[in-house]
Amino acid sequence: MNRPRSFESLDLIIDSDDHQNGALDTTIDDILPAKSGARPWVLPKPLHKSLADEFGNTKWEYLTQDPSKVRYYGSETYFREGLHSTMQVLGACLYHTLHRHTAIVFKPDAVVARKILPALEFLKKHNFDPVFAYSFRYDRLSLREDWRYQLNQLSLERMRLNTLLAQMGDSLLVMLRDSEADRKVPASVRLQLMKGPSFPEQQTPKHLRFVLGSWSRLLKFVHTPDEPADLIREFGILFEDEERRNILRQTTSASADKGMSQVMKMIDTLQAKNPYSPLEFDRSAEKLLSHHFSLAEKGGRYRTFFERLKATIESCRKGEKLDWFALEAELVKLKQNITWDHLVLAAKFIHHSYENEPPLVPNTGVKIWRTRRDLLQV
Rank of each mutant, 00 (worst) to 15 (best):
G300Q: 11
E180M: 09
T77N: 07
M87N: 12
D15T: 11
S75N: 09
P362C: 03
G22T: 06
T304L: 12
R308F: 08
Y354N: 09
A347D: 11
E297P: 00
K367M: 07
P275G: 11
D374I: 08
I267Q: 01
S16M: 03
S315C: 04
S216V: 05
S253L: 13
D241F: 14
L24W: 07
G82H: 03
F305D: 07
L172G: 05
L218V: 05
Q250P: 00
D146Q: 13
L375C: 01
F79H: 06
L120W: 04
L154H: 09
I13Y: 07
P362K: 09
N57E: 11
L360T: 15
V131L: 03
D109V: 05
P4Q: 10
F293G: 00
V185T: 14
A347P: 01
S142I: 04
H291F: 13
V361H: 09
L191C: 03
R244D: 03
L193N: 12
Q65S: 12
G213W: 06
N337D: 14
V361P: 00
L165S: 01
L117N: 04
W324E: 03
P228F: 09
P44N: 10
E355K: 14
D146R: 06
M266S: 15
F349H: 13
V89L: 07
F235L: 15
P205K: 04
R283C: 05
K321H: 15
E320Y: 05
Q203G: 05
L141D: 09
F235I: 02
V185M: 03
L51P: 00
R183T: 08
W324N: 04
D129M: 08
P67I: 15
W147Y: 15
D25L: 11
N246Q: 14
D323H: 08
L376G: 01
F349N: 07
